[in-house]
Simulated scan of single mutants.
Amino acid sequence: MAETSLFQSFFLIFSGAALLATLALYGRQPLLVAYIALGVLLGPSVLGVVNNVQLLADMSTIGIIFLLFLLGLDMQPQALLSVIRKATFVGIVSCAVFLGLGYGLGQLFGFTTVESWVIGMAMMFSSTIIGIKLLPTTVLHHKHLGELMVGLLLFQDFVAIACLMILLSGSTGQVDFAQLGISFAALPLLVLVAWVIVKYVLLPLFTRFDRFHEYIFLLALGWCMGVAELAEILGLSREIGAFIAGITMATSRISQYIALSLKPLRDFFLILFFFSIGAQFKLAMVPEIAVPALITAAAVLAVKPLVFRLLLGNQSEQKVLAWDIGFRLGQISEFSLLIAFLATSQQLIGSGASHLIQATAILTFLVSSYIVVMNFPNPIAIKDELRRD
């Protein structure tokens, strides 16, 4: 089949997504279902009409970068430190439990020790995209629920960065602890440099040229991408760089205008992200990993809410609030997919383990989205009493 041009791919993705999203809304289904289903349908496993999937997947990661940049813009630095302190104990214990769960399941299904540890790593994290996108904006900004969720997700982001760096050093057969130490030492330096540049360069420019909206948009975009790339060079990740870029601008009066300007661009790339998840999944692997994936997904969906409920309950959180957070974080993460792809490229895991993680991610994305949309306040709720923007 001839190579599909980028424009043809965009036409198929966004026209198809508009059609399936319409059907999903009429059928009262989460839109994420439509995007992933479209990826499976148009990708190599079924029709094969979109064949530049890797390019689209690389582009779609920009959506995650924008998501974390906007998350940073919405958080005050003092609030962030307070939130992370509250979330650290829950984060450490929950990550340890989920790592053990994934390792045990990997051993149960006959994977190697290294593959089992990688599966365990993938189980540790919850989806930032689903957690934040299904959380009402008013709750995200002003409520204790939003603060706790953001704190837990940010703690998981730091753990995920450590896991990604461990995997990147895995091709040598040994963990490069020196590089790991350098990367984490670079984190406060990056925050300091970003803060200085914002205070003495960006804010004066915003103040002087605030009438030129196109320039404000361009400067914010360049800042986000620049700090993200600098973080990557320092051995962190583009995602954490984007968050630092956002939070160093959070106290400026122009931060909310920038956030509103970038949201449509973020949504554009997030549609690509969920499409690429479906498109990269090989249906031919289903017979081999169907039973392990179903059992693993069921274990994640059952254990994660319970663990968060118990841990948050021990911290004197209200029972209803603890269950709410547990179900909102009751899936594995887009970081889990990055771990699967990276571990495969480093030849640490085989195709079976990689597709087990991918299938578990898709299943938990879908089922946990249904649970939240049907039972908790969210912006796309089917019941009017649960819809909160």
Rank of each mutant, 00 (worst) to 15 (best):
L148A: 15
F158P: 03
F111A: 05
M123H: 05
A122K: 03
H142G: 13
W117S: 04
L168R: 15
G131R: 02
L167F: 08
T128C: 03
S94C: 00
S169R: 12
G146A: 11
I129E: 03
F125D: 07
H141T: 13
F111K: 03
Y103Q: 00
K143C: 14
S127C: 08
L135M: 15
S127H: 04
F155Y: 10
E115L: 02
V114Y: 11
E147Q: 13
A122W: 04
H144C: 09
A162S: 12
E115Y: 02
L140V: 12
G110V: 00
L148C: 14
I130G: 03
D157Q: 02
T172N: 14
V97K: 06
A160F: 06
S127V: 09
T112M: 02
L168P: 06
G120R: 02
G151F: 06
G173V: 12
L108P: 04
V97N: 04
V118S: 06
F109A: 02
S171C: 04
A122V: 06
C95G: 02
F109H: 02
T137G: 13
Q156C: 11
L105M: 05
S171A: 13
C95V: 09
L153N: 05
M165C: 15
A96E: 09
D157V: 01
V118F: 07
A160P: 04
A160T: 05
C163N: 09
G120N: 05
T137F: 14
I119L: 06
A122C: 04
L154Q: 10
L140W: 12
L167E: 05
G170N: 09
T112G: 04
T113I: 11
G102N: 08
C95L: 10
G170Q: 05
Q107I: 09
V159M: 13
M149P: 07
K143E: 15
